[in-house]
Structure formats: C-alpha cells, structure tokens
C-alpha cells in the first residue's frame, strides 16, 4: 500500500518537501514506517527518533498498524505556546 506522510516544521525543512510517499506492505505498523523513513530519507534522521506519529490526527505508538487511506503525519517535537 502507498502511504503519504505529512511533514511539518523542521521535518518539512529537512526533507525539503511537504509530504513523502512510501510503499509499505499492507498492515505495516508505524514502527516499520519509521524504519523506512530513516533508511530512505536520511536527512530526517536527526528529528526522527524524537518525532511522534499520528494516524488520522490521533497520536499513536510504534505498534499501531497503518490502515489503508489513513492520513499519516510525522509530528516532530512540538513547540507551541
């Protein structure tokens, strides 16, 4: 399945793009997505280990399976306020 990952702030700047498309096996988890991003997009590496991920705008952990057509976002450490 094809997964589109939204990028924000420093992550977007490091990658030089707003979204990354990645091909993953069906039922892949957020942890697997994280590993693939680290391999394919080495520029993201400094932020990746501290970043969280969201599926359909909800924080999730590495074990969470990625549903097809879900909105996936990479959330680097937040700094609002």
């Amino acid at each position: 399945m094809r997964v589109i990952v939204k990028l924000f702030a420093g992550a977007r700047e490091l990658a030089g793009q707003e979204e990354i498309a990645i091909e993953l096996p069906p039922g892949a988890t957020v942890g697997q997505l994280r590993e693939r991003l680290a391999e394919d997009h080495t520029k993201l590496f400094p932020l990746l280990s501290h970043a969280l991920f969201a599926i359909d705008a909800e924080y999730c952990d590495n074990e969470a399976p990625i549903p097809e057509f879900a909105e996936i976002a990479c959330i680097p450490p937040v700094s609002g306020g």
Binding site: F8, A9, G10, E13, L47, H50, L52, A54, A73, I75, P76, P77, V78, S79, G80, G81
Partner: peptide, 23 residues
Amino acid sequence: RVPIWKQEQWADGETEWVHPTPT
C-alpha cells in the same frame, strides 16, 4: 501535546525551527 511549532526569526536574519528534545 498540541501539534503547533514555532520558528525563531533571529534579528541577524537566520531562522530556526524550535524542536525541544527530548520530547
């Protein structure tokens, strides 16, 4: 918790996203 980020616009012209680590 809230996915909002700030970017420093330093007076010397540099910019820098603020990502406090570790979260």
